[in-house]
């Protein structure tokens, strides 16, 4: 995929990485970040998502938000596959520091070390952090 070129729009496909750093609730960054991810799918770019720091909480199973009167948007992560967004990277150090394992997550992800995530970032054309 990364070598796919699209000349129809007059340019190559760019590698976009969205870096999710914040917990899903408490601030709006995660929710509004996901809105950008969904829009990006319409542009046929090479999109990946990285989850680091409290951002790993965005993917935790069984979120119940009735008590805080906010919408539980975590099911949207399961829909990303339908948008051809399948590269989800979770930083191992952040996950472990929060007592989480891969089994706690609601979608299939690739677990990577901080160094590996750093290497992935270095390969991107565009990195947008939320």
């Amino acid at each position: 995929m990364s070598d796919d070129m699209d000349f129809e729009e007059g340019g190559a496909v760019k590698k976009f990485m969205f870096v999710n750093r914040k917990a899903p609730y408490g601030t709006v960054y995660a929710l509004e970040g996901l809105e950008v991810v969904l829009i990006s799918a319409a542009f046929d770019q090479d999109v990946s998502l990285a989850f680091v720091d409290d951002g790993v909480f965005q993917l935790v199973k069984g979120q119940k938000t009735d008590g805080i009167e906010m919408k539980n948007f975590s099911p949207t992560f399961r829909a990303l596959e339908g948008y051809d967004i399948e590269k989800l990277y979770v930083e191992r150090e952040s996950m472990e520091a929060r007592g989480l394992t891969e089994d706690d997550l609601l979608v299939d992800v690739q677990i990577m070390s901080a160094a590996e995530i750093g290497d992935m970032m270095a390969q991107q054309d565009v990195v947008i952090s939320f």
């Binding site: 760019k14 950008v36 829009i39 542009f43 770019q45 054309d125 565009v126 947008i128």
Partner: peptide, 20 residues
């Protein structure tokens, strides 16, 4: 305008710099 303008800016510019 819409969020598409952000993605388009990423595609069309040499660098997209995020301040947050």
């Amino acid at each position: 305008s819409g969020l598409g303008q952000l993605v388009e800016a990423g595609i069309q510019s040499d660098r997209l710099v995020v301040f947050g």
